[in-house]
Every structure is written in structure tokens, then in C-alpha cells.
């Protein structure tokens, strides 16, 4: 029999070695996989995407902007552009870079995968919002159009991504751009957020930190060169114009005006009742559908009934049934703010 101490040390070493190789994402085998990936195709596809984005937003695109967008040097960008031209994806007219029909449809294919993936991550998985873009960036280069169609079918053929961008159809159709940037609104106007640009990440995370998301209703209070003040979900937000520029809004004529401050479902104590006002747009996809299926729609009476450890989850009485909901969701269900009655 071997000495147990030696056996233990050997065992730990073997496990350490194996996890060094096979640990997901950080292990040697996954790193090797990443190194051997086709970097040229990835760059071509990223460049096409950037070019298409410029075209959609009606701004001009240059070798420099490509270099900036892909974070490569200008030399490399110039080479990339000539490669794109050689492939028949791009036409160069002087300084202006223009996508060919073939290039456009290639770009749309990549964008379709990217936005579908973001939608999928947002609706079906519980991936962190800040990770969506990065995962989609990787997947867009790996998916074939057939796989994209399959993914789309699986998640109910969405037409918008979670940032409010339209998803190209499998034939490459896209609706015309609507809305205007938030910083061009006038005080007193009501609007719906229809899109939040997720790049650059620094600005995106600031917008997220304010709790803003597409579909949210806002009312502009004050616009100046230094700041834009507006009300969203009953709370005041202040953004600098540089950040506000990344939010696209659609002006709306209000049908019903929501007044006063909201209360959230999670604030109910056991025995207290409330009336549902709405579910925050941040609850998406299947989560949202499930809550509505269970009868949590505007006007529903709801009563807190049971608490578990740390008050998470809490069971509520909804339309005769007792439903347990985690705090994370209960925080995003709004109640009418009238005084809660004792049950």
C-alpha cells in the first residue's frame, strides 16, 4: 500500500492538472480552440457589419472608422478593405466605401444571427444583460443561415432584438428606421424608448445603470446643452446629451397617462393586497408570458400570503390560486399606489 499522504498529493496534482487542461473557458483545450479559430473571416464579417450599420444610419464610412470599430491598425484595415473588394462584397468610390448587393445580404445575414442571439439570450436564458452582446458577437460567426432560422423558429420568430433593433427577416428585409435620438426631444413630450445602442459598452452600462430599457415610457422635463432631465417609471433621470444620443425614442400621443409613483409587488407584506398596474418591460420572453398566463395582468388583485427564507420567494394569492414568485420578478411587477388594505 502506498503512503496515504503521497497518494493524496498525487491525487490533488492529477485533479489540478486535468482541470488546468479541461476547465471550461479558461482551460488549455478551450484556449487552443480559440487560437485556431478563423480570424480572417471574423474580421471580414465584422467589417461588413460596420459598413452596413453606417449605411442604415446614413453616415459615411471610412478605412479609419473600420480600423476604429474593429480595433486594428489602419494598415490592416486597408488590407481588409481591398480583400472585401476582391471578394465582390464592397465597391470603393474614391473615399466612400459602398456595400455591393452581395455584401449587403452577407452583412444582413450576420446581423440577423447577432440580433436573434441577443433576443434568445434575453428571452430564454438568464444571461446577464452586459454579456449578451459579447456572446452574440461570437455566435454570429459560427451560425449558418439554416441554424439561424431554426433558432428563430424556436423562440417565436422575433422581429425586434432586446435593444429595440429590428431583426432582418430570413430574406434580408428590414423596416425603415423610425424614431429620433432622446437629446432632440422637447420638454413636455411623451415618448417610448424604442432602441438603446449597446456600443460603446461604457456608455451602455451607464444607461443600464439608470434602469432604462426599450418599451419604457418617458416624459421629458428639461433639455439643455448640459443635461436632459426626464421622468421614467415615476422616477427622475438625468443624462448628459452624449449618453442620451444613444437612446432612440418614438414620440407618442398618450392614451392613458400614468400618474404618481408606483409601488412594486415585492413591497407587499404578508396579508396586504394590491392591484397590478403592469409588468416592467425588463421581464421578457417566457418569464413575462408565464406571469401573464397565471393571470398577472393590469387590474388583477393580488395578496401576499407566504414568505420563505429571506422573503424570497414569496407566495401570492392571484385569481384564487397561490403562486410563488421570486423577488427578482416581484420587483418588476408594479402595483397601483393607493393605500394597501389589510386583508
Amino acid at each position: 500500500m502506498t503512503d496515504p499522504l503521497i497518494a493524496l498529493i498525487a491525487g490533488i496534482l492529477i485533479i489540478g492538472f486535468l482541470s488546468y487542461i479541461f476547465w471550461p473557458n479558461f482551460g488549455l483545450s478551450d484556449k487552443l480552440k480559440r487560437w485556431t479559430q478563423d480570424t480572417e473571416r471574423v474580421q471580414i464579417e465584422d467589417a461588413l457589419k460596420h459598413l452596413y450599420d453606417c449605411e442604415y444610419r446614413n453616415i459615411s464610412c471610412t478605412i479609419n472608422s473600420i480600423a476604429g470599430n474593429l480595433s486594428i491598425n489602419a494598415d490592416r484595415a486597408a488590407k481588409l478593405v481591398s480583400r472585401l473588394e476582391a471578394l465582390g462584397l464592397l465597391a470603393i468610390q474614391g473615399e466612400v466605401l459602398q456595400l455591393t448587393a452581395q455584401g449587403r445580404s452577407y452583412a444582413l445575414r450576420i446581423i440577423r444571427v447577432h440580433r436573434l442571439w441577443e433576443r434568445y439570450l434575453a428571452d430564454e436564458t438568464s444571461t446577464k444583460e452586459l454579456d449578451w452582446h459579447d456572446i452574440a458577437e461570437k455566435q454570429e460567426h459560427l451560425f449558418t443561415p439554416e441554424q439561424a432560422d431554426k433558432l428563430a423558429a424556436q423562440i417565436g420568430n422575433p422581429v425586434y432584438d432586446p435593444h429595440g433593433d429590428p431583426i432582418p427577416s430570413s430574406k434580408g428585409d428590414l423596416p425603415t428606421k423610425k424614431g429620433k435620438p432622446l437629446n432632440e426631444m422637447l420638454p413636455g413630450e411623451f415618448a417610448n424608448i424604442i432602441h438603446i445602442e449597446d456600443e460603446p459598452p461604457a456608455i451602455y452600462s451607464q444607461i443600464l445603470a439608470q434602469g432604462l430599457y426599450p418599451g419604457m415610457q418617458i416624459r421629458v422635463l428639461e433639455v439643455s446643452d448640459k443635461r436632459i432631465k426626464f421622468e421614467a417609471n415615476g422616477e427622475e433621470c438625468v443624462l448628459s446629451p452624449i449618453i442620451a444620443k444613444n437612446i432612440t425614442v418614438g414620440i407618442i400621443q398618450l392614451e392613458k397617462q400614468v400618474e404618481g409613483k408606483y409601488k412594486v409587488l415585492s413591497s407587499l407584506k404578508v396579508g396586504e393586497k394590491g392591484t397590478v398596474l403592469g409588468i416592467a418591460k425588463a421581464l421578457r420572453g417566457q418569464q413575462r408570458r408565464r406571469l401573464m398566463d397565471l393571470g398577472i395582468v393590469p387590474g388583477t388583485e393580488i395578496e401576499a400570503q407566504l414568505e420563505s427564507l429571506n422573503r424570497d420567494p414569496v407566495a401570492y394569492k392571484v385569481r384564487g390560486a397561490v403562486i410563488a414568485i421570486r423577488k427578482q420578478q416581484a420587483d418588476r411587477i408594479y402595483l397601483e399606489s393607493k393605500e394597501s388594505e389589510k386583508g
Partner: peptide, 10 residues
Amino acid sequence: GEASAFSLEL
């Protein structure tokens, strides 16, 4: 990923 929604009828 993080834990997603949970709604369970008792």
C-alpha cells in the same frame, strides 16, 4: 447565467 424567473403554483 443567473437564476431566471420562477413561478410555481402551490
